[in-house]
Protein backbone atom coordinates (compact mmCIF):
# COMPACT_ATOMS: atom_id res chain seq x y z
CA UNK A 1 0.00 0.00 0.00
CA UNK A 2 2.87 2.38 0.79
CA UNK A 3 4.31 1.67 -2.61
CA UNK A 4 1.00 2.36 -4.33
CA UNK A 5 0.57 5.55 -2.40
CA UNK A 6 4.10 6.67 -3.23
CA UNK A 7 3.37 6.14 -6.92
CA UNK A 8 0.06 7.97 -6.62
CA UNK A 9 1.68 10.97 -5.00
CA UNK A 10 3.99 11.41 -7.98
CA UNK A 11 1.01 11.51 -10.33
CA UNK A 12 -0.73 14.07 -8.15
CA UNK A 13 2.44 16.15 -7.97
CA UNK A 14 2.74 16.08 -11.72
CA UNK A 15 -0.79 17.30 -12.13
CA UNK A 16 -0.28 20.10 -9.62
CA UNK A 17 2.79 21.22 -11.53
CA UNK A 18 1.22 21.10 -14.97
CA UNK A 19 -0.90 23.88 -16.40
CA UNK A 20 -3.85 21.79 -17.68
CA UNK A 21 -6.02 22.05 -14.62
CA UNK A 22 -5.50 25.76 -14.12
CA UNK A 23 -6.30 26.51 -17.74
CA UNK A 24 -9.52 24.51 -17.58
CA UNK A 25 -10.53 26.02 -14.27
CA UNK A 26 -9.98 29.57 -15.47
CA UNK A 27 -11.87 28.75 -18.66
CA UNK A 28 -14.77 27.44 -16.60
CA UNK A 29 -14.79 30.52 -14.41
CA UNK A 30 -14.65 32.85 -17.39
CA UNK A 31 -17.42 31.10 -19.31
CA UNK A 32 -19.64 30.85 -16.27
CA UNK A 33 -18.97 34.51 -15.55
CA UNK A 34 -19.89 35.43 -19.10
CA UNK A 35 -23.10 33.44 -18.93
CA UNK A 36 -23.89 34.99 -15.55
CA UNK A 37 -23.42 38.53 -16.74
CA UNK A 38 -26.05 38.29 -19.47
CA UNK A 39 -29.00 40.52 -18.64
CA UNK A 40 -32.18 38.46 -18.64
CA UNK A 41 -35.26 40.60 -18.39
CA UNK A 42 -33.65 42.57 -15.54
CA UNK A 43 -33.97 39.60 -13.20
CA UNK A 44 -30.90 38.78 -11.16
CA UNK A 45 -32.40 35.86 -9.32
CA UNK A 46 -32.52 33.57 -12.34
CA UNK A 47 -30.02 30.89 -11.45
CA UNK A 48 -30.83 27.48 -12.85
CA UNK A 49 -29.53 28.09 -16.34
CA UNK A 50 -26.30 29.30 -14.77
CA UNK A 51 -26.08 26.21 -12.59
CA UNK A 52 -26.65 24.04 -15.61
CA UNK A 53 -23.97 25.75 -17.69
CA UNK A 54 -21.51 25.70 -14.82
CA UNK A 55 -22.10 21.99 -14.20
CA UNK A 56 -21.81 21.20 -17.89
CA UNK A 57 -18.46 22.96 -18.00
CA UNK A 58 -17.33 21.15 -14.88
CA UNK A 59 -18.28 17.80 -16.37
CA UNK A 60 -16.52 18.50 -19.63
CA UNK A 61 -13.43 19.81 -17.87
CA UNK A 62 -13.30 16.88 -15.45
CA UNK A 63 -13.50 14.38 -18.29
CA UNK A 64 -10.74 16.15 -20.15
CA UNK A 65 -8.57 16.24 -17.05
CA UNK A 66 -9.21 12.63 -16.13
CA UNK A 67 -8.71 11.23 -19.61
CA UNK A 68 -5.69 13.26 -20.68
CA UNK A 69 -3.98 12.81 -17.33
CA UNK A 70 -4.54 9.04 -17.36
CA UNK A 71 -3.89 8.46 -21.04
CA UNK A 72 -0.42 9.92 -20.90
CA UNK A 73 0.79 8.15 -17.72
CA UNK A 74 2.07 4.84 -19.04
CA UNK A 75 3.10 6.02 -22.52
CA UNK A 76 5.11 8.83 -20.90
CA UNK A 77 6.77 6.39 -18.51
CA UNK A 78 7.82 4.28 -21.45
CA UNK A 79 8.74 7.07 -23.81
CA UNK A 80 10.88 8.82 -21.22
CA UNK A 81 12.11 5.45 -19.97
CA UNK A 82 11.35 6.32 -16.36
CA UNK A 83 9.57 3.00 -16.09
CA UNK A 84 12.92 1.17 -16.12
CA UNK A 85 14.51 2.50 -12.94
CA UNK A 86 11.07 2.31 -11.36
CA UNK A 87 10.27 -1.32 -12.15
CA UNK A 88 13.85 -2.28 -11.31
CA UNK A 89 12.80 -1.62 -7.75
CA UNK A 90 10.63 -4.00 -5.76
CA UNK A 91 7.44 -2.82 -7.44
CA UNK A 92 5.04 -5.29 -8.96
CA UNK A 93 3.23 -4.46 -12.17
CA UNK A 94 -0.04 -4.56 -10.26
CA UNK A 95 1.24 -2.00 -7.79
CA UNK A 96 2.42 0.13 -10.66
CA UNK A 97 -1.03 0.10 -12.29
CA UNK A 98 -2.85 0.66 -9.02
CA UNK A 99 -0.52 3.52 -8.14
CA UNK A 100 -1.18 5.18 -11.47
CA UNK A 101 -4.92 4.66 -11.10
CA UNK A 102 -5.02 5.98 -7.58
CA UNK A 103 -2.89 8.98 -8.49
CA UNK A 104 -5.10 9.97 -11.41
CA UNK A 105 -8.22 9.42 -9.36
CA UNK A 106 -7.05 11.44 -6.39
CA UNK A 107 -5.75 14.19 -8.67
CA UNK A 108 -9.09 14.50 -10.48
CA UNK A 109 -10.83 14.32 -7.11
CA UNK A 110 -8.86 17.33 -5.94
CA UNK A 111 -9.74 19.13 -9.16
CA UNK A 112 -13.42 18.25 -8.62
CA UNK A 113 -13.32 19.66 -5.12
CA UNK A 114 -12.12 23.01 -6.45
CA UNK A 115 -14.71 22.94 -9.20
CA UNK A 116 -17.60 22.12 -6.90
CA UNK A 117 -16.63 24.79 -4.39
CA UNK A 118 -16.72 27.24 -7.28
CA UNK A 119 -20.11 25.87 -8.29
CA UNK A 120 -21.37 26.25 -4.72
CA UNK A 121 -20.27 29.87 -4.68
CA UNK A 122 -21.96 30.55 -8.01
CA UNK A 123 -25.28 29.06 -6.97
CA UNK A 124 -25.21 30.48 -3.43
CA UNK A 125 -24.54 33.94 -4.80
CA UNK A 126 -27.99 33.91 -6.35
CA UNK A 127 -30.01 31.33 -4.47
CA UNK A 128 -28.95 32.20 -0.94
CA UNK A 129 -28.92 28.61 0.13
CA UNK A 130 -26.26 26.01 0.36
CA UNK A 131 -27.45 22.39 0.08
CA UNK A 132 -24.08 20.92 1.01
CA UNK A 133 -25.32 17.35 1.23
CA UNK A 134 -26.78 17.46 -2.25
CA UNK A 135 -23.55 18.85 -3.65
CA UNK A 136 -21.66 16.19 -1.77
CA UNK A 137 -23.76 13.49 -3.34
CA UNK A 138 -23.35 14.97 -6.80
CA UNK A 139 -19.61 15.38 -6.39
CA UNK A 140 -19.23 11.90 -4.98
CA UNK A 141 -21.14 10.30 -7.83
CA UNK A 142 -19.18 12.37 -10.30
CA UNK A 143 -15.95 11.17 -8.73
CA UNK A 144 -17.10 7.55 -8.78
CA UNK A 145 -17.89 7.85 -12.45
CA UNK A 146 -14.42 9.23 -13.08
CA UNK A 147 -12.98 6.14 -11.38
CA UNK A 148 -14.56 4.01 -14.10
CA UNK A 149 -13.37 6.37 -16.83
CA UNK A 150 -9.84 6.44 -15.44
CA UNK A 151 -9.67 2.66 -15.18
CA UNK A 152 -10.98 2.40 -18.73
CA UNK A 153 -8.42 4.89 -19.99
CA UNK A 154 -5.63 3.10 -18.18
CA UNK A 155 -6.68 -0.12 -19.86
CA UNK A 156 -6.79 1.73 -23.17
CA UNK A 157 -3.30 3.11 -22.68
CA UNK A 158 -2.02 -0.45 -22.46
CA UNK A 159 -3.99 -1.70 -25.42
CA UNK A 160 -3.46 1.25 -27.76
CA UNK A 161 0.03 2.55 -28.31
CA UNK A 162 -0.62 6.21 -29.08
CA UNK A 163 -1.89 8.25 -26.13
CA UNK A 164 -3.80 10.67 -28.36
CA UNK A 165 -5.78 7.96 -30.11
CA UNK A 166 -6.47 6.28 -26.79
CA UNK A 167 -7.63 9.58 -25.32
CA UNK A 168 -9.92 10.23 -28.24
CA UNK A 169 -11.40 6.75 -28.14
CA UNK A 170 -12.01 6.95 -24.41
CA UNK A 171 -13.54 10.39 -24.72
CA UNK A 172 -15.89 9.28 -27.48
CA UNK A 173 -16.92 6.15 -25.55
CA UNK A 174 -17.52 8.11 -22.37
CA UNK A 175 -19.49 10.83 -24.10
CA UNK A 176 -21.45 8.22 -26.05
CA UNK A 177 -22.45 6.36 -22.91
CA UNK A 178 -23.32 9.57 -21.10
CA UNK A 179 -25.59 10.69 -23.92
CA UNK A 180 -27.10 7.44 -25.14
CA UNK A 181 -26.47 4.76 -22.49
CA UNK A 182 -29.84 5.28 -20.87
CA UNK A 183 -31.75 4.83 -24.10
CA UNK A 184 -30.16 1.78 -25.65
CA UNK A 185 -32.85 -0.51 -24.31
CA UNK A 186 -35.59 1.61 -25.85
CA UNK A 187 -33.75 1.70 -29.16
CA UNK A 188 -33.34 -2.07 -28.99
CA UNK A 189 -37.10 -2.49 -28.66
CA UNK A 190 -37.54 -1.09 -32.14
CA UNK A 191 -35.01 -3.41 -33.74
CA UNK A 192 -35.35 -6.86 -35.24
CA UNK A 193 -33.43 -9.91 -34.11
CA UNK A 194 -30.54 -10.55 -33.92
CA UNK A 195 -29.76 -6.83 -33.68
CA UNK A 196 -32.12 -6.51 -30.77
CA UNK A 197 -30.36 -9.08 -28.61
CA UNK A 198 -27.02 -7.61 -29.62
CA UNK A 199 -28.01 -4.12 -28.53
CA UNK A 200 -29.51 -5.47 -25.32
CA UNK A 201 -26.21 -7.19 -24.66
CA UNK A 202 -24.39 -3.92 -25.13
CA UNK A 203 -26.92 -2.18 -22.91
CA UNK A 204 -26.31 -4.53 -20.02
CA UNK A 205 -22.56 -4.77 -20.55
CA UNK A 206 -21.52 -1.15 -20.70
CA UNK A 207 -20.88 0.81 -17.53
CA UNK A 208 -23.81 3.18 -17.24
CA UNK A 209 -21.86 6.33 -16.56
CA UNK A 210 -24.98 8.43 -17.00
CA UNK A 211 -26.33 7.03 -13.73
CA UNK A 212 -23.75 9.11 -11.95
CA UNK A 213 -24.78 12.28 -13.73
CA UNK A 214 -27.20 13.95 -11.33
CA UNK A 215 -26.76 17.44 -12.67
CA UNK A 216 -30.48 17.87 -13.32
CA UNK A 217 -31.31 17.02 -9.72
CA UNK A 218 -28.88 19.67 -8.54
CA UNK A 219 -29.95 22.28 -11.06
CA UNK A 220 -33.60 21.93 -10.12
CA UNK A 221 -33.14 21.54 -6.38
CA UNK A 222 -34.50 18.02 -6.10
CA UNK A 223 -34.33 16.10 -2.85
CA UNK A 224 -31.42 14.01 -1.70
CA UNK A 225 -30.86 10.65 -3.33
CA UNK A 226 -31.55 7.82 -0.88
CA UNK A 227 -28.27 6.86 0.76
CA UNK A 228 -28.93 3.20 0.07
CA UNK A 229 -28.89 4.03 -3.62
CA UNK A 230 -25.64 5.89 -3.13
CA UNK A 231 -24.12 2.74 -1.65
CA UNK A 232 -25.36 0.67 -4.58
CA UNK A 233 -23.95 3.20 -7.02
CA UNK A 234 -20.62 3.00 -5.25
CA UNK A 235 -20.60 -0.76 -5.56
CA UNK A 236 -21.59 -0.51 -9.19
CA UNK A 237 -18.70 1.86 -9.93
CA UNK A 238 -16.29 -0.27 -7.91
CA UNK A 239 -17.23 -3.37 -9.85
CA UNK A 240 -16.56 -1.80 -13.24
CA UNK A 241 -13.39 -0.10 -12.03
CA UNK A 242 -12.11 -3.40 -10.68
CA UNK A 243 -13.01 -5.11 -13.93
CA UNK A 244 -11.09 -2.64 -16.08
CA UNK A 245 -8.11 -2.62 -13.76
CA UNK A 246 -7.97 -6.39 -13.71
CA UNK A 247 -8.11 -6.50 -17.49
CA UNK A 248 -5.32 -3.94 -17.63
CA UNK A 249 -3.24 -5.99 -15.22
CA UNK A 250 -3.78 -9.23 -17.13
CA UNK A 251 -2.48 -7.62 -20.29
CA UNK A 252 0.33 -5.66 -18.66
CA UNK A 253 1.52 -8.42 -16.34
CA UNK A 254 3.52 -10.36 -18.92
CA UNK A 255 4.28 -7.59 -21.34
CA UNK A 256 8.01 -7.28 -22.09
CA UNK A 257 9.38 -3.79 -21.62
CA UNK A 258 12.04 -2.75 -24.02
Amino acid sequence: MNTIWALAKIVVLEMVRRKDFYVLFILTVLLTGTAGSVNLFNDNSIVRYLKEICLLLIWAASLVIAITCTARQIPAEREQRTIFPLLAKPVTRAQFLLGKFLGCWVATGMALLVFYVFFGIVSASREQHWPVLNYLQAGLLHWLMLAIVIALTLLGSIVFAAPSSNGTICFVCTAGILLLGRHLNKVALGLTEPLQSLLYGVYFAIPHLELFDVRDLITHNWDLIPWGMMVLATLYAAAYTAFFLTAAWLIFRRRPLN
Binding site: I53, L57, A60, V64, I67, T68, A71, P163, G167, T168
Partner: peptide, 16 residues
Protein backbone atom coordinates in the same frame (compact mmCIF):
# COMPACT_ATOMS: atom_id res chain seq x y z
CA UNK B 1 -3.42 16.92 -24.35
CA UNK B 2 -4.81 15.40 -27.48
CA UNK B 3 -6.12 18.08 -29.83
CA UNK B 4 -9.27 16.08 -30.37
CA UNK B 5 -10.09 16.38 -26.70
CA UNK B 6 -9.63 20.11 -26.78
CA UNK B 7 -11.89 20.27 -29.79
CA UNK B 8 -14.48 18.25 -27.92
CA UNK B 9 -14.28 20.60 -24.98
CA UNK B 10 -14.63 23.57 -27.26
CA UNK B 11 -17.74 21.99 -28.72
CA UNK B 12 -19.18 21.34 -25.29
CA UNK B 13 -18.63 24.91 -24.25
CA UNK B 14 -20.02 26.16 -27.50
CA UNK B 15 -23.16 24.18 -26.78
CA UNK B 16 -23.33 25.56 -23.29
Amino acid sequence: PAPALLAALALATALA
